[in-house]
Design a protein around this nucleic acid. Structure first.
Lengths: 195, 195
DNA sequence: AAGTTTATTGACTCGTCAATCAACAAAAAC
DNA sequence: GTTTTTGTTGATTGACGAGTCAATAAACTT
């Protein structure tokens, strides 16, 4: 049976199975056995390719982040002008795909992981820095020095709105979520410094 | 040795130990044995009083929420006027106590729990509704109908800023965090509806 | 054809853990 | 003073899980 060149295929299957299984369980409390079964192989093979469970989690996190990164690049490619590009960045964060059960599960659990696993924290930093620099590139021409705090604010608000929407009882409303962040942007861009 | 009236004492000790242990582990992956040892009793006694581990987690969540609720009430008691009261609500969310390792751990893990455990989700709703109604009480006199979306925005932003600050590499900056949310409030309260 | 690398798994080890139970002890109730 | 209630734990059960290992087999190398 052994076909050669299985490694990337198996690894990809395990990454997908890990994300799906985290989504199903709603926590990191999933066994290698469950992941391996979903990916259609033995636990021994899963260990063979990833060494241990933590590596599987980290690979899953990398994958979620890279999907998000690709979506952002795609959205930016078709947006013209600073304001349109800002809106595009915001909207991507609340695209339907971001609210799939397994993606939500992954994000929430990555926050938990980031408390204690250095590599998870590093990956979270990558996400935050990338978002920040994307926002700054558009904000600086618009509002100069105030771009920095506003970019931080937008980043925080995206996370906060995302969590609320993801844990809401109703089906997530991506459009409403984006509108809320954009209202923040309006308020800040249009802002006169108060006495 | 059996002293009477131990139940509330033991339960309180277990709740505290549960929160501390979640903070130490950074996850819900803590054993009843660890909790019981920290609380100075046997695992059998912990089970005797709480039945199972999930009940311990939920009791811990209730406790964290009730502490937060008490802080909000305290802050509101000494604030005068809508704007001062809004600021007080925001500041309380970023008080030093909220950034203690074990409190952060509790919050992040409660989000995770809320995905799958109905009672955890219910408790999260209690927190959100209470915050929302506190905000609305002050915002309505100030901005009328726009109070609702602004209150939602403030709630989301508090959560988002909190998570960023809690997972930051530097020691948490509660004052800066509050400033960021207050800037959002300024932008919204001061807002003229745009064309 | 012999040796090496890659793919694959069943079986196993060693550990852990939630929950239960039987038993003991002290106070309260009767 | 005996029964009931409350507090308490050591020991045990029954289950599961991460990671290892030896063994098998196909493909590639020389």
């Amino acid at each position: 049976m052994p076909k050669l060149g299985m490694e990337p295929i198996r690894k990809a299957a395990l990454v997908k199975a890990t994300i799906d299984e985290i989504g199903r369980a709603g926590s990191l409390d999933v066994t290698v056995s469950q992941i391996a079964r979903r990916a259609g192989m033995s636990t021994a093979l899963a260990h063979h390719y990833f060494g241990n469970k933590e590596q599987m989690f980290l690979a899953a996190m990398r994958h979620v982040l890279s999907l998000y990164g690709a979506e952002v690049r795609g959205a930016l490619a078709t947006a013209d002008g600073p304001r349109a590009r800002l809106n595009a960045i915001v909207r991507v964060s609340f695209a339907a795909g971001s609210f799939r059960r397994e993606v939500v599960g992954a994000w929430l659990n990555f926050y938990v992981l980031a408390q204690t696993v250095p590599e998870a924290r590093r990956l979270l930093r990558v996400y935050q820095r990338r978002l920040r620099s994307n926002l700054l590139a558009e904000l600086r021409p618009m509002i100069g020095a105030r771009a920095v705090p506003v970019a931080e604010g937008v980043g925080a608000m995206i996370d906060g709105v995302y969590i609320r929407e993801a844990l809401s009882d109703r089906p997530p409303d991506g459009v409403g979520a984006a509108r809320m962040v954009i209202a923040y942007l309006d308020g800040q861009i249009d802002h006169r410094v108060l006495a």
